[in-house]
């Protein structure tokens, strides 16, 4: 088996004693402790009072949600691609035909039931990527909680509520997003 022989640095007697290095290390940790205690440095965010919201990065992937366009039409055409691609199978879609008297009858299809189980969702964003109609987006909501498993299943109503309206020709690869 091939192996690489690492050259270790040769230590002087003083360095071998270990104690000076130890004391140096203790000084560093003590310095950190003191500056934290004096309130100069602090990495912790005191959660319920301070929140991520202001510091959320652009690319943050939160809860997936459905959007409507400026005419109030739901963009989703129930093609079920997202249901198919979702790795943990969090999405359940029940499609239905749009009746002929409807204004948008020529769209032909829409979801009757659209549910995302937020216990299963892994926030991967594949649904957003695969959607041909630009109907599903990952929003910045991150505090998704519930008391029961049923609470954690977002139905169609809830999804539209989170998603809101998207106007214009939404192109998901540009800044408009």
């Amino acid at each position: 088996m091939a192996y690489i022989k690492i050259k270790r640095p040769r230590l002087g007697l003083f360095e071998k004693l270990y104690l000076p290095a130890l004391i140096k290390g203790l000084r560093i940790t003590l310095g950190h402790a003191i500056s934290t205690l004096r309130g100069k440095k602090r990495e912790t965010m005191q959660y319920p009072e301070e929140k991520w919201d202001d510091n959320m990065p652009e690319h943050y992937r939160g809860a997936p949600a459905l959007v409507t366009d400026e005419q109030g039409r739901e963009r989703c055409v129930a093609c079920q691609l997202c249901e198919f691609i979702c790795p943990p199978r969090a999405i359940t879609i029940l499609p239905e035909e749009i009746p002929t008297e409807d204004k948008w009858a020529k769209v032909e299809k829409r979801p009757r039931k659209f549910e995302i189980d937020m216990i299963r969702c892994i926030y991967c964003g594949l649904c957003e990527e695969v959607c041909p109609e630009q109907a599903i987006f990952l929003r910045k909501d991150y505090a998704i909680t519930g008391l029961t498993r049923e609470d954690m299943v977002h139905d169609k109503e809830k999804l539209y509520e989170i998603g809101g309206v998207r106007t214009g020709l939404v192109n998901k690869w540009n800044e408009l997003k």
């Binding site: 940790t29 950190h32 402790a33 500056s35 934290t36 205690l37 440095k41 602090r42 990495e43 912790t44 005191q46």
Partner: peptide
């Protein structure tokens, strides 16, 4: 607490 303070946490 001490470990937190050393690592700049609370």
């Amino acid at each position: 607490r001490v470990s937190a303070v050393i690592q700049d946490r609370l």
